[in-house]
Each structure stands twice: as structure tokens, then as C-alpha cells.
Simulated assay, not measured.
Amino acid sequence: MAVEGACSLALDEEQLASAAKRLLAGDLALLPTETVYGVGVAVNAYLDSGGLPGSETGYGRIFTLKHRDTSQTVPWLVDGPDALDRYGASVPDAIRTLAAECWPGALTLVVPAAARVPHFMRAADGTVALRASASPVIQDLIRATGSPLAVTSANTHGYPAPASFAEVEPRILEGVDLAVDAGETACRDASTIVAVRDGAPVILRQGALPAETIARLLEN
């Protein structure tokens, strides 16, 4: 396991190139978002898998590492609002408004998945969860790989999500191929998750972005 960018808010060019290369090879990484630390992979490394990647792959190890059922999906970290049109389909206006106002930031938006989203990366209802993270590390890696990152919180399922590198469980750290240490995250709460159900926005998980802020943005 290589530890990149120790206690840094960004990677230098050599570190970035190395991390991007390993992600595109399918490696599993520990990564800092602005909310909590996550474990994840580059989506593009798995587009030609033809089905759910095996448990020995970086993507498959997300689930064994977290003790999480493979029927659950992993959110995608994307570059910005334009990603709604690349990876989403029939995206509701309310979702577009929230993305325009809150991305990059601590808001995950659930949308109908576009045809290019692999079936094993979709929820049972055919949706995919997208977020543009404000973490410089994440944004740099998305640009360097040319790929979304499928990332979920770096914790055993049911345990608190780590908001600093020091809080990452040793077994999680030992289970990844590379790790980026950016110290403490800017925001210690997980992202708020919003979807549209029956034509109305619904908060599926209350997190860092307050419900009042979401309501205000959608009223305007």
C-alpha cells in the first residue's frame, strides 16, 4: 500500500499521475472527500467487466472490506453539473437546480441512470447517486483519470465514517491498495442525499447540507 500526499490537501504532479494510473488499473483507494474519507475505484476501470466484478477486484473488495452486501450500490463522485447529462437520464429540474447551486459540495443527488451506467452500479430502481465533491484531491483525480470515482464511506458497515485519516480503521487501511492522507476533512458530516419521488424532492439522508437550505433553493 502506498500512502500518497501525506497530510496534504492536494497531490503533486508525480503523486497524481501515480494514483491515477493505479486507479485506472482497477486498484482500490482510500480517498479524502470534503465530508468523510471513502474507499473507491475509478469507474472506467470496470466498464467492460460484463457483470459484477469478482470479490478479488478493487470494486469487489469495497463490499468485503465494508462487510456490505453487494446488492447495495456505490455513489459516484463526478466533476460537476454537466455529469447529470452524461450519467443521468430524464433528470428532474429540481435536481438540476440543486446541482447548479450546491456542487461542488456535500450533496448527493439520486437520478435515473443513463444507459452507459453499468447495471451492477445501478440501484434496484435503476438509479445512480452522483456528487461533485469539493475535495481538491477528488477533483484532480477525476480529471487525471478522465473517470468518475465510485466511492463510499471508509468504514465497516454500521460504524462511524472517518472524518480524518487518523480515524480510519486499521483493517480498512490495510485493505486498500493506496491511500491519500489529507488530515482532517473540511466537513465532518456525510453528504445529504436527495432524490425526486412522485415528482417531489425527498431527502433520503440528512447530512451536512441542511434541509432548510434545500427547501430555500427549490423555492426560488
Rank of each mutant, 00 (worst) to 15 (best):
A2S: 12
A10R: 15
L11W: 11
D12G: 13
D12S: 13
E14G: 14
Q15C: 13
Q15A: 15
A17C: 13
A17Y: 01
K21M: 04
G26Q: 05
G26I: 03
D27N: 09
Y37V: 02
G40T: 07
A42N: 08
N44C: 11
N44A: 15
Y46G: 08
P53Y: 05
P53W: 05
F63L: 10
T64N: 13
T70C: 08
S71D: 13
V78C: 00
P81Q: 00
A83W: 03
A83D: 09
D85L: 00
A89G: 00
A89Q: 08
S90I: 01
D93Q: 09
D93F: 01
A94D: 14
A94K: 03
A94P: 04
I95W: 01
R96C: 02
A99V: 04
A106Y: 01
A106V: 01
A106W: 00
L107S: 02
V110K: 03
P112N: 05
A114C: 01
A114S: 12
R116I: 12
H119V: 11
R122A: 05
V128A: 10
R131H: 09
A132G: 00
S135E: 03
S135M: 03
P136H: 06
Q139K: 09
D140E: 15
L141P: 12
I142V: 15
I142G: 07
A144D: 11
G146C: 11
P148G: 08
V151D: 06
S153T: 14
A154F: 01
N155D: 10
P160L: 07
A161L: 04
A161E: 12
A161G: 10
P162N: 10
P162Q: 08
A163V: 04
S164H: 06
P170M: 10
R171F: 04
I172S: 07
L173K: 12
E174L: 12
G175Q: 05
G175R: 00
G175L: 06
L178I: 04
E184Y: 06
E184K: 14
E184M: 09
T185F: 02
A186Y: 01
C187K: 02
R188Q: 09
A190Y: 00
A190L: 08
T192W: 03
T192I: 07
V196M: 09
D198Y: 06
G199K: 07
V202D: 12
I203Y: 04
L204D: 13
G207Q: 02
L209V: 10
E212K: 07
I214W: 02
R216C: 06
L218N: 10
E219D: 14
N220V: 14
